[in-house]
Design a protein around this nucleic acid. Structure first.
Length: 279
DNA sequence: CACGACACCTGCCGGC
DNA sequence: TGCCGGCAGGTGTCGT
């Protein structure tokens, strides 16, 4: 899926086009992507709603809403799963297969959620309420925020016997990192993905903490990785996949030392790393 | 409690 | 050409 850089790119693309718009028509596709409330109430809540700002939290998108049938503080929550896209389209444009939400706006454009695999999710409600109902998970710290601090990170690693990669992928610890950028950050930090967290030195822990935002910011500058399904807020591909060092390069030479990159399963996910320069 | 295995889906690619 | 297995950027649940 879209990881933090992809979601951030979409949010930045959509923000100026959504803020202040009013929903003129709601159309739903497959009901299983609507996780809260039931599809009828979901559609009714969105009808006539006024859109506010859109923001990112981890891999989630939160769109502020105000409407006649909505309680104050309601948001539309979008998670793209593995194959989801959230794009602006011309209302006259033919509907792509697997379109699960169309919000026609009064500005003559339409917001569309398309997701072939249906691992993505849509929710409507107040975030605190959704969390209380167990519909939204508790998320860990934002790797691009000030709370992603050295002492906290050192403590997290010290307290865990899990592989480093498992910690990076754990959304309750770090929110927004996924399989691509976990591998890239570990490569940049020169640390093996399977390395036990509590066996890292302080310097190694700090190298990884510094590497993650570098990798994520570079990917945002390249507008995200479009390996298969990912598209930005206007339906265009990103370029970040063109400059990945390890992800998807198993069996190819390491750009840093020339060793053959190793492909393995770590924390249940396909993982690529360099046996030559990662320890 | 912490962790791994598996399920949830469709599409695409390579091998036979 | 077609069928089949394997694989994919994520995460929720269940069992050990």
């Amino acid at each position: 899926m879209p990881e933090l850089p992809e979601v951030e790119t979409i949010v930045r693309d959509l923000r100026p086009h959504l803020r202040g718009a009013r929903v003129a028509e709601v159309r739903l596709g497959h009901p299983s992507v609507i996780r809260h409330p039931d599809p009828a109430a979901f559609a009714a809540g969105l009808a006539e709603a006024r859109l506010g700002t859109i923001r990112r939290r981890g891999k989630f998108m939160l769109l502020d809403l105000a409407g006649p049938r909505l309680t104050a503080g309601s948001v539309l929550v979008v998670h793209l799963g593995m194959s989801g896209t959230l794009c602006l389209a011309d209302p006259a444009e033919a509907e792509r297969r697997h379109t699960h939400l169309r919000l026609r706006l009064d500005r003559g454009r339409e917001l569309r959620f398309v997701d072939p695999r249906r691992f993505g999710r849509l929710l409507l409600g107040r975030p605190a309420e959704l969390q209380r109902l167990g519909r939204l998970p508790r998320l860990g710290r934002e790797p691009l925020g000030p709370a992603f601090a050295a002492d906290w990170w050192a403590g997290v690693l010290h307290a865990s016997r899990r592989p480093l990669k498992a910690l990076l992928l754990d959304q309750a610890i770090v929110s927004g990192c996924g399989n691509i950028y976990a591998d890239e950050a570990l490569f940049l930090a020169r640390l093996r993905p399977g390395r036990r967290a509590d066996r890292c030195t302080a310097a190694q822990a700090e190298a990884l903490r510094r590497a993650l935002p570098i990798v994520l910011r570079a990917a945002i500058r390249s507008r995200g990785s479009s390996i298969a399904d990912y598209r930005d807020g206007f339906g265009a591909r990103g370029q970040a996949h063109e400059s990945l060092f390890v992800y998807g390069r198993g069996g190819l030479p390491c750009v840093r030392c020339g060793a053959v990159l190793r492909r393995a399963v770590v924390a249940g996910r396909t993982t690529v790393s360099c046996p030559g320069c990662q320890r």
